[in-house]
Design a protein around this nucleic acid. Structure first.
Length: 191
DNA sequence: TTTACGATCTAT
DNA sequence: TAGATCGTAAAT
């Protein structure tokens, strides 16, 4: 296994979103390894992207997106949910990839403690669900995904077959004006 | 200080 | 289809 290096995240954010498909999200809790294969992502790109949290510039919340690539941006939303992003692109350019869905691989017992009351297909098939499954909260905000020290990282995985990669508009941004609402910056793997 | 709202999920 | 529930950023 190889931990993805910073250079991977320094690529153009839309490319990185697609390249993350098939990679392995890993979380270590009390020595227990949880992991899942990334199968859905979305790119958020710069201040001009009106769907991106950085649309209103640098704030305490968005500061991490302006920092070096390869760090986690974990934000709280709807009064109860956490969502995980990987900061991408060049420093001082705010961009991140939202991890929307993964397929659980390792640590199924540990995941089941939090998601076991639902069918397994629904354990990690949403950005807030995978955070609940992997016990990811604001405590992980700004951590370095290129190091295994903080218990959250991404490992290399098999490249997804190009013909299985789909793209389309991002989810949950109904009130965002065009062209941003329709930018095909959501990526997923067909079955 | 107050207000409005959200990169969601769940039960109805 | 609506309710939960609170941090964030803009308005007052």
């Amino acid at each position: 296994m190889t931990v993805l290096a910073r250079a991977f995240y320094e690529q153009e954010v839309v490319d990185t979103a697609r390249l993350l498909l098939g990679k392995r999200l890993v979380r270590e809790i009390d020595g227990i390894r949880l992991s899942g294969t990334i199968c859905e992502t979305e790119a958020y790109r710069g201040e001009e992207d009106l769907a991106c949290h950085a649309k209103s510039g640098r704030t305490p919340r968005t500061a991490v997106m302006y920092g070096p690539a390869g760090h986690a941006y974990v934000y709280f939303t709807y009064g109860m949910h956490w969502c995980l992003n990987a900061v991408c692109g060049a420093e001082d350019f705010p961009a991140a990839v939202l991890l929307r869905a993964i397929w659980p691989v390792d640590g199924l017992d540990e995941i089941a403690k939090r998601r076991g009351r639902f069918p397994r297909e629904q354990w990690c098939n949403g950005p807030a669900k995978l955070c609940q499954a992997f016990s990811i909260t604001g405590e992980q905000n700004t951590i370095d995904l290129c190091s295994t020290r903080s218990g959250l990282w991404i490992e290399d995985g098999p490249e997804s077959a190009p013909e299985k990669i789909c793209s389309g508009p991002r989810v949950g941004i109904q009130s965002v004006p065009e062209p941003w609402r329709s930018m095909p910056w959501r990526f997923w793997v067909s079955e």
